[in-house]
């Protein structure tokens, strides 16, 4: 298990030259084992630069990054890169071997594993991205775009990293390709307990999978929190050039009419549930004209019009509130 801590990390490209450009500015972030972290932001907001720090490809120009509490040193760099697998944007462009099998195994060269062990790992990685053994001896150059991309990802997870970092993994894929690829990543995380860091500007994807989300704007963190909290802030998202999922926008508009709507809805599933609940609630009435709930206890009278709350559902389906929040 590996936890990565970034403290006030900044990165400036070509420092000291006229073309110097600050790509990251004072990023503080703790990536804990098992986390599914989303990094959102427009192109050029610093996502890629941030990701390349996570496996030591780039070094902060100020601030620091530590792995399990110790700063990285040149010594364990290759080891670190095996523990933090980084999938680049358009990873299919890095395939080079004659066969899929050899390409995937490239990440294991120099590890001292036996050929048998390597074979097991390669097959495991290929299976994890949903490709069968028939692919092993094919040339990576004759595969379709989506297949190539999966092979490239297999080439990264073959080292069994604790942290899997993906930079726009679904860019350019069709809806099915996008969905399947993400499903494989989710499954990997579940089965191997991987930490996943996913950079994307596809907010629907982010909403469906990420637990924590950091939104970057011009290299600084504009928002950070749970997916619910981040997507609630439609205004900030718009300002940094991102769109909250359509469903979130719809529900927040509806909330102006029905204030009791939960405002952290980021998926269609959640919206359907919420609307059904609301519909049920709209149809419910109080037991009598004093507007008491079905339990009709003293508290309802004391409150006057009883407050509604989480318990105000109607399990017996008779159209009458079974209990208000205070009963």
């Amino acid at each position: 298990m590996l936890s990565i801590r970034l403290e006030n990390l900044s990165h400036t490209y070509q420092r000291g030259t006229p073309v110097e450009k600050t790509a990251l500015h004072n990023i503080t972030l703790l990536i804990e084992p098992g986390m599914f972290l989303g990094i959102a932001g427009r192109s050029g907001s610093g996502k890629t630069t941030l990701l390349q720090h996570l496996n030591g490809l780039l070094k902060p120009t100020s601030g620091c990054i530590t792995f399990n509490g110790s700063p990285m040193d040149g010594h364990g760099m290759r080891d670190l890169r095996r523990r933090v697998g980084l999938v680049f944007q358009h990873p299919e462009n890095q395939l080079f071997e004659e066969t899929v099998c050899r390409d995937i195994a490239f990440g294991l060269s120099g590890t001292g594993l036996s050929p048998a062990e390597i074979d097991i790992r390669v097959r495991g990685a290929l299976e994890a991205v949903g490709l069968g053994e028939t692919f092993l001896n094919r040339s990576p150059f004759e595969l379709s775009g989506g297949e190539k991309r999966r092979v490239a990802i297999a080439g990264v997870i073959v080292t069994d990293p604790s942290v899997l970092v993906l930079d726009e993994p679904t860019a350019g894929l069709d809806p099915r390709g996008r969905r399947e690829l993400l499903d494989h990543i989710v499954a990997l995380r579940r089965e191997r307990g991987m930490t996943v860091v996913l950079a994307t500007h596809d907010m629907e994807q982010m909403a469906r999978h990420a637990e924590q989300v950091m939104v970057l704007e011009n290299g600084s963190s504009a928002l950070f929190g749970t997916a619910r909290d981040v997507f609630r802030d439609v205004g900030t998202l718009e300002r940094v050039g991102l769109e909250a999922p359509r469903i979130t926008i719809l529900m927040s508009k509806l909330k102006k009419v029905f204030p009791e709507i939960d405002d952290g809805i980021v998926t269609v599933d959640a919206a359907v549930e919420e609307l059904k609940r609301l519909h049920r609630r709209q149809g419910l009435r109080w037991r009598d004209h004093d507007e008491r709930c079905a339990r009709g206890s003293v508290c309802c009278r004391e409150f006057g019009s009883p407050p509604v709350g989480p318990q105000d559902e109607d399990p017996d389906g008779d159209g009458i509130y079974d209990a208000c929040i205070s009963c």
């Binding site: 290759r78 890169r81 095996r82 490239f106 990440g107 294991l108 060269s109 120099g110 990264v156």
Partner: peptide, 9 residues
């Protein structure tokens, strides 16, 4: 960079 992060030397 991509190959370096796959452990290429």
């Amino acid at each position: 960079k991509a190959q370096v992060s796959r452990g290429a030397g």
